[in-house]
Each structure stands twice: as C-alpha cells, then as structure tokens.
Amino acid sequence: MTVWEKLRPYSMVAPSIIIFSMFFIYPIFYMIYLSMFDWNFVSPTKTFVGLQNFKELLLDADFRQVLSNTTIYTLLTVTLTTGLALMLALWLNRKGVFHAFVQGAIFSPHIISLVSISLLWSWLMDPEYGLLNWAIGLLGFGKLEWLSHPSTSLVSLVIVAVWKGVGYNTLVFIAGLQSIPKDIYEAAALDESKPWTTFMKLMLPMLSPTIFFLVIINMIGSFQVFETIAIMTQGGPINSTNTLVYYIYEYGFRFFKIGYASAAGVILLGIVGILTIIYFKLLSKRVHYR
C-alpha cells in the first residue's frame, strides 16, 4: 500500500473536517477558554480570572431574570406553537383548494426574513397607531401596551414567534398525520372507537415521534431567540424581554466584556447541549412500525 493510498481517504474528508474545525469546534473551545478571562476585545493582555465570570453571572439578578425570561419565552412559544400547529394540522389534513390555500398562507411567514417580520409586528403592535389595538378596540376592549409594558412585552414576542413558527410545524404535523395508514382509522371505526378515543389512543401515540421532534427543535430555536428582541425591544422595557443570546450580545459587543459574555455562552451551550442529548436519547426509543 502506497503512502497516497493511505492518505487518500483523509484527503477526501479533509476539506469538511477543516471547515468544521475552524468554524465550529475551534470557536466552542475558544469560547470556553475566554470564559475564564477578563478581556475587552482590544487590549493585548487577557487576565485569567478562573471561574470568577460564572460566579458573577450567577449572582447577577439581571442574569437570573434573563434565564427566567428565556425559560418562560421558550415554554410559552413551544407549547403554543406545537399545540396550535397540531390543531391546525388536524383541520387542514384533507384535500381541497381552500385547505391547500390556508396551508400555504400559514406557511408563508416561515420564508420571510425575521427582520422584516420584526419590523412588521413592531408596527402592528404600536400602542397608538397599531392595527392590533385598532382591532381589539373594535371588539370593545381597551388598548394594550404590547411591547412597551413589562407585563405584556414578553408575551408579545411569543405571539410573533408562534405566528412565524406555526406554519412549518403544521406542515410537519400534516406529514406525520398522512403517514398513519388509513386502514388504522377504519379498524378503529369497526372497533367502535369514538373520535376522541381514536385521537388519544391511536393518533397521538403514532404522532409522538413528530411531536417530540418539533418540541425539541422549537425549544432549541426558542432558547436562541435574538432577532426579534434586537429589533423590537432591545431587551426592554426594564429587562423584561432580555434573553440569553441577546444578553450575550450586549455584554460581548456593546460592553466589550468578552469573558463575561463567553461565560453566558457556555451556559447556553450547556442548556442546548442537554436538550440535544435528551432528544437523541429519546429518539432512539421512538416508535417504528413495519
């Protein structure tokens, strides 16, 4: 065996390995490394501080609020998106021009850039001139502050996220529903199964891999929410919409506390890492049939 023959396979995978290492592996380790230093991005000296950054982070009341904001945002977004998408999918899972149209319509936000969406919704949610306040005014309700009040700002962002995500989720659910063989429903009908029983005992269990996939994907996505916050609220008012990634961004690129931001990044990495591990652990147990 010549040297070239030995090297050939490595040379084939080398480009992807190099790119992957440069842009994924190296930054991760560099971030973990930076999280133990005090550095402002420009000064030539980095001061080693050990786990000081983490200690400060966990003692910081703002950071704790950021964590709780992110968790609440994620829980609300994931439950609402998945739940709504499931209901929509059950309704849209049939043939017809109307259903195809609705399916296309609710999917369209998925292909629009988040920046446009954020601008659009900032305008819709404007307390004075927004379309939403006008609409609820017609229904006889008082005006809402939407993004401008700490009590409604986070929920407003959740609404935008659900609006954007529900179409894609519905599509995945419809695909899941269509993979259930028709004769299962017929067998259930002959077994005198009521619609609710069929849904709970047959459809839901058979959809569980789909539900699971969407929940995890949505969770990972929600934990990393950034664009809407950067454009619509900048974390405000009074820190009420500040989330992990936005917090990292602020400390890293506005206050230039790179070490501190990296420490927060490591915590985010940990959370998303745990979610991913759970996903793959449970994925291996998913239902296979035939």
Binding site: P181, I184, E186, A188, L202, P205, V287
Partner: peptide, 10 residues
C-alpha cells in the same frame, strides 16, 4: 384487513 391494520403503538 389486507395489511392487518394493527394498532402499532399497542
């Protein structure tokens, strides 16, 4: 049924 149509999750 031809394909048995068993309930796969049960």
């Amino acid at each position: 049924f031809q394909n048995y149509a068993l309930y796969p999750t049960m």
